[in-house]
Design a binder for these strands. Sequence first.
DNA 1: AAGAAACCTGATTCAGTTGTCATATTGTGA
DNA 2: TCACAATATGACAACTGAATCAGGTTTCTT
Lengths: 208, 208
Amino acid sequence: MSSAAKDIAPSAPKTARGARTRARILKAAEDTFGTLGYHRAGISDITRAAGVAQGTLYCYFSGKEEILRELVRDMGHKVRAHLAASVIGARDRLQAEELGLRAFLEYVSANPSLYRVLQEAQFVDEAIFREYYEAFGKGYMRMLADATRKGEVRPGNDEIRVWALMGMSNFLGLRFALWDQDRSFDEVVATISDLFRNGLALDGKEKA
Amino acid sequence: MSSAAKDIAPSAPKTARGARTRARILKAAEDTFGTLGYHRAGISDITRAAGVAQGTLYCYFSGKEEILRELVRDMGHKVRAHLAASVIGARDRLQAEELGLRAFLEYVSANPSLYRVLQEAQFVDEAIFREYYEAFGKGYMRMLADATRKGEVRPGNDEIRVWALMGMSNFLGLRFALWDQDRSFDEVVATISDLFRNGLALDGKEKA
DNA sequence: AAGAAACCTGATTCAGTTGTCATATTGTGA
DNA sequence: TCACAATATGACAACTGAATCAGGTTTCTT
């Protein structure tokens, strides 16, 4: 598993052609992992989809796991960029939550493979999975803390809240963006927004 | 993969000894999947842990996947029983949520293997994973609807809410019961309870 | 156009896995 | 005690799929 020469990543491509091939392999892996799952997908499935020979894959990646790691990193960048852009211009934190949730659902819907890959990474390389959510959570916590300072959000334990919020998004994405789109994103966002603004309980706030 | 005789499950044990052996294998599989993960765990790892020969496993299960399915069903029963028991005597829905969340965190903490197995089942046999959450969600929705009728909970889309709530529990379990217990369950429960009672926003309810 | 560097090939190797089956053991009812 | 049915064994045949590498092809530079 760690035979010295196995773990070091092959050199990066030096020409445009190489970069193109590497990118083709990555895209093919995303599709293949997305439809077949990481374990069912063989190297030969990926290289066939990419239209290259088996050995070519090892010019750019040390193996299957490194491809997965690369894809998770990719997903991290893309999701964060998409959400950050979606939230620009939000009036307050609550509206930012609405915009962010909608953007997340849209992202999952448009990139089902990457989303699946991320979830599966949990069981292939837990470290990179945690890294993703801890990075995500850190930024999220900062935003909540800011919002609390501005008086938009009740004070509370933001670390716990952030994990709760990420869990919500995760399951809503799974159910309403990946599995069945039988509820409009509007309806999902509205329901969660109501939870954030008013809680679940019918009786009023303890302190207004 | 589906060679006719492969899918039919071997007959159930006819004697107490057989039942005992079957149970030993199941427990060993739970532990082995829990520590190594489903894919890294080999049949030989399971049978070694159970103290039986390789062939014995095939007396009771058609293969690795069937063991996983059995474990997920098991987890479903146990979690539901544990939560149902924990919620008895709750004054209202909000208190039931508190009790239920705490019971869930305790269950995960006490049964990390089963929890991991459930999550991993998503990528081995998605149907049984969905089955678990849809069954869970159905009961949950009924309880929310009852609570709404009693005036304990704001009216809203309970299907969406339930998936959000399950997602919260799932991530809180992962982070604070499975990975690091650096927050007491009390603190987690209190934070989420505050969210349910008062929302995230500082300003008051739209309708009291 | 020659030479060099980067890139690509794919049959083959090989470590590891599952599932089988002929045989042995155990327990039970008559 | 004997017969026989259920249970258990474990060596191994058959298979899988990741990774290799010796050699071929393309592209770039001068």
